[in-house]
Amino acid sequence: MRSFRAGYYIREGLSSIFTHGFMSFASVFIVVACLIIMGSFSLLAVNVNKIIGDFEDENVILAYIHESYSVEDARALAGAIDAVPNVRSARFVTREEAFNSFLSGVEDKSRFEDIDATVLRHRFTVYVDDIAFIERTQEDLLNIPGVARVTANLLIARALVTTRNIVSGVSTVIVAVLLIISLFIMMNTVKLATFERRDEIAIMKVVGATNSFIRWPFIFEGFILGLFGSLVAFITQWGLYTAVTDALLSGGATGGGLIQAISFSQVALSLCVVFAVIGIGVGIIGSSFAIRKYLKV
């Protein structure tokens, strides 16, 4: 009895998709278009975040320790530095290590023969969690007794933060707008399907069909359209993303491999889930809304 019912709903839902072929095509097309635009902006935002993350790793704060501190005393400041908010990690570098790494970058080492490591200070290389608060962190570090000077590249930090804010803000707005648009289109598609079948619905009501009996085939129709739309969108997005990132990489627009795009396989699963949830959600919610008014007889 139960399984027979499900069979009926599925048959009716599927046949409705084919009898309203054009509208079904149109709604799938709109869902696909909206999902791809949403997906492209999300992928862009994800990539920008990743690139900024890469920069963050390089954009360190250097905290120089007062000359009067011994190696042990300087090293002991690690706890205080770690305790500063927004500090992800801090690495202690002795003046000898700093001098050696400086020398290793110099070709003509003889020019520095009469200079030794004492001209330099012990220091901490500090990595931050969020580049947006780097100025604040810089001040906090400077307030630690023993820290003599703090340097960071604020200009790059500010530029990165602004870029990230713009990209994620624009993406959020676009995703929200497209979500609403695709919901409306889906609603109208199923509304057209129900409008064409309003006589049929009226007959069902008159012979004593319950509302849920009438509703299920339409819900199933919305489900299938949404599922199909998200599937097509996913595959298209896949091809599109791969093509675009390949083109950018080979075109040298990435500064000789300094910038790496996220590979599709890394985001495939989340994208697949998000597309399916949005597509199916839009399908089901759209058709539930569309059919409501025809059931009030």
């Binding site: 007959i203 008159v206 004593g208």
Partner: peptide, 28 residues
């Protein structure tokens, strides 16, 4: 109820038109 304008479903056969009323009320 037998309506003045019959109210049959044009896309369904005679058999289906009648069977549909039974299906609508949950018959097996």
């Amino acid at each position: 109820v037998i309506f003045q304008d019959f109210r049959l479903i044009e896309k369904k056969t005679v058999y289906e038109n009648v069977a549909f009323a039974m299906r609508a009320v949950g018959a097996s």
